[in-house]
Design a protein around this nucleic acid. Sequence first.
RNA 1: GCCGAUGUAGCUCAGAGGUAGAGCGCUUCCUUGGUAAGGAAGAGGUCAUGGGUUCAAUUCCCAUCAUUGGCUCCA
Length: 645
Amino acid sequence: MINITLPNGSVREFEKGVSGLEIAKNISHRLAKEVLSITVNDELWDLSRPIENDASIKLHKWDEEEAKHAYWHSSAHLMAEAIEILYPGVKLGIGPSIENGFYYDIDFNDYSISDSDLPKIEAKMQELVKAKQPIERKEVSKPVALETYTKKGDPYKVELINDLEDGTITFYTQGNFTDLCRGPHLPDTGYIKAFKLLSIAGAYWRGDEKNKQLTRIYGISFPKKSMLDEYLVMLEEAKKRDHRKIGKELELFTFSQKVGQGLPLWLPKGAQLRERLEQFLKRVQKRYGYEQVISPHIGQKELYVTSGHYAKYGKDSFQPIKTPSEDEEFLLKPMNCPHHCEIYKHKPRSYRDLPVRMAEFGTVYRYEQSGELHGLTRVRGFTQDDAHIFCRPDQLKEEFVKVIDIVLYIFKTLNFQEFTAQISLRDPKDKGKYIGSDENWEKAEQAIIEAVEKKGLKTTTVLGEAAFYGPKLDFMVKDAIGRKWQLGTIQVDYNLPERFDLEYIGADDKKHRPIMIHRAPFGSMERFVAVLIEHSGGKFPLWLAPDQAVLLPVSEKFNEYAKKVADLLNNYDIRTLVDDRNEKVGKKIRDNELKRIPYLLIVGEKEADDNLVSVRLQGVGDKGQMTIEDFAKHLNEEVENQIKQ
RNA sequence: GCCGAUGUAGCUCAGAGGUAGAGCGCUUCCUUGGUAAGGAAGAGGUCAUGGGUUCAAUUCCCAUCAUUGGCUCCA
């Protein structure tokens, strides 16, 4: 007999070799039905794996990540099993569970696979589910594992096994399908009740572009059909918030084949929105001691040779612009820092002058790979809300902390609650990708870590995500369907000051090297607006809304009164329109609600007689009558409240 | 750049080897209204572009361009 300790601390006795599923049955029938995986002494196990010694356990139901992991992982195996049956001879890569669902990377050899093949695979999976094949775990030695896959002729698994340590290798088998896998898995294939294969994509083996591209099939599965249906509906709903869709509906931006891929055209309403955001940030930056500068859109090639960007990105950028005079070459600027370095250098700097904080809404052009372009979130021409802070070493931490404050203030004002702060460090295994001395890198990384600690900011740390010249603190936000985008970024840089030979005269009358902080709280106006659209569903806060109020005369007889009111409100700096179409008021309400205009003002005989408006709040409904002045006052107060610190 | 999908009216989409359709929007007319769609008529398309197959191609095939789901990349 062995003692099993449950999460509540109680201890029960079981036969040696009892499985998690048997323990669950012993506790309650219902639990046994719902449980999907088990943690045994802090290790995630299969529900059917026998427990041989005293242990503390926790059983996992669907609502826990540990359960979903096993569920989706087994779903991936189920899909692979079906594919092996339908396409004999395919070679399997890896097939993990992911945040939402699972995938399997498969080398289909000469078979070509497209969306239309998915139903066939789903049908085969359904058969295998019905068969309720037990999923069995087996420990194997490294030589045996290698032999198995060498014989099978699967180079991918052989490569994986070679990287594993003997004694840690396990196989999982269901029916005639066996896979190298750490597990854990469900007890049998019958557990997988509802599933759908979602899409096909190419994916490089081990994520390396130089390797062969395998076919990746994504899928999702749930213990209940209703949950799958709900999930698919949720996905559809999320797509309604897609900034590309709303951008079109609200006439914020467009693209033109003739202008070029990835080059957004801002329409009047989008331009208004963007300008308002720029004004807002400019005001904040002024408070924080920034000064605006302006630099040209091109610079001599030499500028980027000096900065190191040419060596790193020259081949993959928009190519140099020739001029009538031979040997002269300019680049469209892919970033603003070199220009700002030259501004710093235009006169000698004293330690008393520092920090110098130089801000510019700088439009830059980067030749992103065509497959990478995506709405406004990834474009080839975009405007950074850029600034560079040139400071002394003793000012670095404080300056960095102040930038964090700006980012957090902006996120708060715009109601971005769900973001992650990510410390992006260099990949210690691939130092060749980066420029600058180890010593400077360590100083820079330390500065970020200390600043973050001082702010008590919760962060994740990712190796290999640093810029080539320095580490970063990135603020990541998810879009409507859960893709992560980097918005704000703060970077410490010891390298450019060296390359541009920047200096200041210290109190000791000697020359010193300033440190540079690159920072962009929005990241880029394009991406920020995109994410803002998806977070708000196009219902922008009042202070940002391109149109704040619209007059809806109940009949044409009151068009004139409506125009008078609109003029008055515009004089109060309220962005007001008149909907004087020959339509019923119900129709006007519907149309303007869909345009997400915050205030709808209905005017008819009652209002015209007493200088009133009937106020209807977007998404809420009738708020009753007000005088024009009261409404203006009310609206302006609301705006002030939204942007006050 | 790579793997898969898509491209038809301003927008959302249907359609078939034989000269193109709906709803919304737009224009005009009727209606003059009170909190989420009043009625009628009309205009609007080189079916992304270029080749090929065919008596005939917007439809089938190929290429290009663009969009899109991923992969890789992201100064």
